[in-house]
Amino acid sequence: MADVLTAEAVEDELGGLTSWSGDPTGISRTVELASFPDAITVVDRVAATAEELDHHPDIDIRWRTLTFRCVTHSAGGVTDRDVALARRIDEIIRSAR
């Protein structure tokens, strides 16, 4: 099982991510896309990536606004797996704009 990152490590990792916030209990990012179909396309791409990584974020969809939350539930907090997924989510969002 992956180890939960310290508060300092999470803060350091957040510095390399786009618009993510959080602490060792979870990290999240909210983004607004141009349209509802664009938002759903991003969700579909994140879902495929999550399957590939076997690590799944919580996703909240509100029209064209998406909130992603990453936490390794089995470890009880943020791990390297969450940071890796957040990086991939950032890539997907960048390519959608």
Rank of each mutant, 00 (worst) to 15 (best):
1 M>A: 15
2 A>L: 12
3 D>T: 14
4 V>H: 03
4 V>G: 05
4 V>N: 05
4 V>C: 09
5 L>S: 07
5 L>T: 12
6 T>A: 06
6 T>K: 02
8 E>T: 08
8 E>P: 05
8 E>F: 09
9 A>K: 11
9 A>L: 09
11 E>Y: 11
11 E>G: 06
12 D>L: 05
12 D>I: 06
13 E>W: 06
13 E>I: 07
14 L>H: 04
16 G>H: 06
17 L>Y: 07
18 T>P: 09
19 S>L: 12
19 S>G: 08
20 W>E: 11
20 W>R: 11
21 S>Y: 05
23 D>I: 07
25 T>N: 09
25 T>K: 07
25 T>W: 04
26 G>K: 09
26 G>M: 06
26 G>D: 05
28 S>G: 08
28 S>E: 09
30 T>Y: 04
30 T>P: 03
30 T>N: 05
30 T>C: 03
30 T>W: 01
31 V>Y: 03
32 E>Y: 08
35 S>C: 13
35 S>W: 14
35 S>P: 08
35 S>M: 13
36 F>D: 04
37 P>H: 13
37 P>D: 14
38 D>F: 01
40 I>C: 01
40 I>Q: 04
40 I>P: 01
41 T>V: 00
42 V>H: 02
43 V>K: 14
43 V>G: 14
44 D>I: 10
45 R>L: 15
45 R>F: 08
46 V>L: 14
46 V>D: 07
47 A>I: 15
48 A>P: 01
48 A>D: 11
49 T>F: 11
49 T>P: 04
50 A>R: 10
51 E>F: 05
52 E>V: 04
53 L>C: 01
54 D>E: 10
56 H>F: 13
56 H>C: 12
56 H>Y: 14
58 D>H: 01
58 D>V: 00
59 I>T: 08
59 I>V: 15
59 I>E: 12
60 D>Q: 03
60 D>M: 02
60 D>L: 07
60 D>P: 00
61 I>E: 06
62 R>H: 03
62 R>W: 02
63 W>E: 07
64 R>T: 01
64 R>S: 02
64 R>D: 00
65 T>S: 07
66 L>P: 02
67 T>K: 10
68 F>D: 07
68 F>S: 05
68 F>C: 06
69 R>I: 03
69 R>L: 10
70 C>S: 00
71 V>A: 02
71 V>P: 01
73 H>W: 10
73 H>C: 10
73 H>D: 12
75 A>V: 08
75 A>P: 04
75 A>G: 08
75 A>W: 04
77 G>C: 08
78 V>M: 08
78 V>G: 02
79 T>F: 00
80 D>M: 00
81 R>E: 05
82 D>K: 00
82 D>W: 00
83 V>N: 00
84 A>C: 09
85 L>A: 13
87 R>N: 12
88 R>K: 10
88 R>L: 08
88 R>H: 09
89 I>Q: 11
90 D>E: 10
90 D>A: 13
90 D>Y: 09
93 I>K: 07
93 I>Y: 05
94 R>K: 15
94 R>C: 12
94 R>M: 15
94 R>W: 10
95 S>P: 06
96 A>T: 14
97 R>A: 04
97 R>N: 05
97 R>I: 01
